[in-house]
Amino acid sequence: MSLLTCDARGVYVISVTPFTDQGEIDWDSLDRVVDFYFDKGADGLTILGMMGEAPKLTQAESRAVAERVIKRAGGKPVVVGVSAPGLAAIGELGKAVMDMGAAGCMVTTPGSLKTDPQIHGYFGQVSRTLGDGVPIVLQDFPLATGVQISDEVLGRIIDDIPQVVMLKHEDWPGLAKISKLRRAEAEGRRRISILCGNGGVFLPEEMARGADGAMTGFGFPEMLADVVRLAGDGDMDRAQDIFDAYLPLVRYEQQPGAGLAVRKYVLAKRGAIGSAALRAPGAGLTPEAIAEVERLLARQEKRLKELN
């Protein structure tokens, strides 16, 4: 498997981790959902992220999931989330998954970082912990971490830490950050790949600002692939039309604490996983929520037929 580079483009779907109704990892569904993502147009996968319920897995389970997915991907790139409160855990999991054939490691900022020097210094420590040559995806997700990475600090990280080859852009509002990065590159700064998260809710605008694609999840990953492809071809009107057809469900998935349950419900309904179960603590959808999702799905199908 090739390593992630600063030129990476396309859609790297954030994979769910399937569980049985009893809370055990559903290995058959894990194989099936990997195949599903690639069949629907994913260029790569990202596993053990926040929406993959990584904090609910043991270290041994995380390694086993990574090994299974990397093998199932058959040489297609797999990025592994290795974020942890301490550098020792990051190093242990990161080195293990790179030996398995991962394309790179995704790391976000712990909430304890409060100052610009701390943020800059942290990613230097991460790069040394993972070792030379390990590509790093910097996940900039202040809505979850509470850590704001300024444009200036991000620029210094890019300048000083060549192992950071990709930004997982999840700042909100953050469109201006993409524009500033691309302008800096036009003026001579090293280029990095920018893939965007937040459930894809701003994907057309992010692509127009210069993003290279998406690194997020959704119950219909083919929408992410279509929008990224169309935007890359310059057909922004068609990309927007396709996006708008799915937007009500994208919006519904954005509910804090409920979005993953919605995503898993849709994936189970589509046959990608065997159960919509979340590992405890975590609850499924109420009957009222299921009725709302079903209504959105029916309207989405109708609109897609109208768009042909």
Rank of each mutant, 00 (worst) to 15 (best):
S2R: 13
T5P: 08
T5Y: 06
V11R: 03
Y12K: 00
S15V: 01
Q22M: 10
G23C: 11
D28C: 02
S29F: 05
L30F: 00
V33M: 07
V34L: 00
Y37P: 00
F38A: 02
D39S: 13
A42G: 08
L48E: 10
M51P: 01
G52D: 03
P55K: 06
K56L: 14
L57K: 10
Q59V: 14
R63T: 06
V69G: 13
A73C: 08
K76V: 03
K76I: 04
P77R: 01
V78I: 06
V78A: 02
A84V: 01
P85Q: 07
G86N: 15
A88L: 14
G91H: 04
G101P: 09
V107F: 02
P110S: 10
L113Q: 05
T115V: 05
D116R: 07
P117V: 05
Q118F: 00
Y122W: 14
F123R: 03
Q125G: 00
R128G: 01
R128M: 03
D132M: 03
G133M: 09
P135L: 09
V137K: 01
L138F: 15
D140I: 03
P142G: 04
T145Q: 10
G146N: 14
V147N: 08
Q148Y: 09
S150D: 03
S150G: 08
E152Y: 07
V153S: 06
I158Y: 03
I158S: 01
D160Y: 00
P162Y: 11
L167F: 08
E170P: 06
E170W: 08
E170K: 06
G174R: 02
K177W: 02
K177I: 11
S179K: 11
L181Q: 07
R183M: 13
E185A: 15
E187F: 12
E187H: 09
R189W: 03
C196M: 02
G197Y: 05
N198V: 13
N198S: 12
N198R: 12
L203S: 09
P204M: 11
E206L: 05
E206P: 05
M207I: 10
A208L: 12
M215W: 00
G217E: 08
G217L: 13
G217P: 01
F218R: 00
F220W: 15
F220C: 10
V227K: 06
R229H: 09
A231H: 08
D233H: 09
A239K: 07
Q240W: 07
Q240C: 08
F243D: 09
R251G: 00
R251I: 08
G257W: 09
G257M: 07
A258Y: 08
A261G: 11
A261Q: 10
L267H: 09
A268M: 15
K269E: 14
K269I: 00
K269G: 12
R270M: 10
A276Y: 02
A277T: 12
G284H: 10
A291L: 12
V293H: 02
R295P: 01
L304T: 04
E306D: 14
L307Q: 11
